[in-house]
Design a protein around this nucleic acid. Structure first.
Lengths: 265, 265
DNA sequence: GGCCGCGAATGGTACTACCATTCGCCGCGC
DNA sequence: GCGCGGCGAATGGTAGTACCATTCGCGGCC
């Protein structure tokens, strides 16, 4: 059978495709407002219910966001991976992935981005990396949480590598680790992190890809090690549930929900 | 403001959270069937509409799938990242990335996965990689398109690396490249690809991570080179649209739709 | 000139009804 | 007794209507 169905199983599916297509074709650009649900229903010759089903799907995919009120409606969203990242988090939690998975994935991806960044970053990009390092330094000095500054540094590196896909990947991994990292902050490791960052920045400025990659690798391996140790002590001090037992589900849920709230802000 | 809203903006959102939570907590396991929409509506004290809105969202997130009919209903799906991977592909396509980006990203990620695979794959996984190589060989012999077999090989490697997040990343990259690769098939490169795959498999069997990584790196660098050359000749022979012009949107849409069809099968 | 309130537009939800699909069960025919 | 076909029930999909809550703009009032 080489033919495709003449219509989607659901009418709402067809609507999703059409709107999606309009967005891809550029007929709808980020920020544009779709017609109201009632108008769309008329245009598609379906009921409002069907239109709403379609909008729900598009919303869940992060393609649009919906506001209520007089000037409300469905707006094509700026392309961002927040929704997708949320879905990934959900899936990962469901699969009971350990946090070491994103940590490991991050290590391999960011080692490469560091190399690339050193080789092809323009001055402005390096400048931006430098600013994040600067911010990190003052944060360490005042003994404030270092997590966010640290993450900004890594994203800046990825941006300097001039590959949007890698950058998106790094951001996704970052979001996965973010919430947990907030808990494991401690001053000593913040200082070590800051030192590593400054060394990497030097390598970037020297345009030494090999060194940058090597330093980043060390830095992230060290991070992986700290994370593992942290998870162990946490498991040990908790109420005895080990990795083999069902799961520390509740804690995980809270993290997920926190993440979702954060991304919806 | 440290307080959280007492309820979700939408009732359907609250329902999503509750069902999601039930899945996380293990009260609902993959394969389980939720109550019918009418029953759920009664339990939640809302209308069927609201329940359906919630189910749409959960479905879009890949947490459940819905069947019609007497024995139909919403079933907790086996956790798989297909929906998520699809969303990523959509987002990436929206950002109008050039094909060289996924190619490059793929190079760095898969080099690492090859190393990891060699170091930690179990025999069954290597066996599966071997099967894809075998299939590739017969495909080459009969001069059939090599793309799919080749991609299967790379996914098998990622699975062997025992890191689901990396595996999902590889699959996402793969989907992005797939369609274009279909066009650039040529017998010579298929043979070169096959040869590279067989060498990598050898390295895997020898548990030589360094060699596997090195071979994969060469293999993918070579692929990047071929891709670039192919894109150049294609640009030259096409109607002159360059990377700077708006975009070859239509082609991209078709690809996306093909992709979606493929993943929904 | 600024503030308040009213009304219109819009999404959110409810209720009802009917259709299409699917499957199990029962009865009919072999 | 066995199998097959059809009927009916359960379920999701869609339609239509109505009403509520939110939001914003506009006009009138202070």
């Amino acid at each position: 059978m080489v033919f495709t169905p003449v219509r989607q199983a659901r009418a709402s599916g067809e609507i999703v495709l059409q709107i999606e297509r309009a967005i891809f074709d550029g007929e709808l650009r980020p920020g544009d407002r779709l017609e109201s649900e009632r108008e769309l229903a008329e245009q598609f010759s379906v009921s409002r219910i069907t239109v709403r089903d379609a909008l729900r799907v598009l919303e869940a995919r992060g393609l649009i966001n919906v506001k209520v009120g007089a000037t409300g409606g469905a707006f094509v969203s700026e392309t961002n991976l927040d929704q997708v990242v949320g879905s990934i988090s959900t899936m990962i939690a469901l699969r009971k992935m350990t946090l070491s998975e994103p940590a490991e994935a991050r290590t391999v991806v960011e080692t490469a981005t560091a190399e690339l960044a050193a080789e092809r970053a323009d001055d402005a990009a390096i400048q931006r990396v430098g600013e994040t390092v600067e911010r990190g330094r003052s944060v360490v000095r005042e003994q404030l949480p270092h997590t966010e500054a640290s993450m900004d540094f890594h994203v800046a590196i990825a941006e300097a590598a001039r590959n949007e896909l890698l950058c998106a990947t790094v951001r996704a991994y970052r979001d996965l680790l973010m919430q947990t990292l907030d808990d494991m902050r401690d001053v000593r490791s913040a200082r070590a992190t800051q030192k590593a960052h400054e060394e990497i920045l030097e390598a970037l400025r020297a345009r030494d890809g090999e060194a940058a990659g090597k330093l980043m690798l060390e830095h992230l391996r060290d991070f992986e090690k700290r994370l593992r140790r942290y998870l162990q002590t946490k498991d040990a001090t908790s109420d005895g549930r080990s990795q083999r037992k069902p799961a520390p589900r509740t804690a995980r849920i809270e993290r997920i929900e926190r993440l979702r709230r954060a991304s919806s802000r």
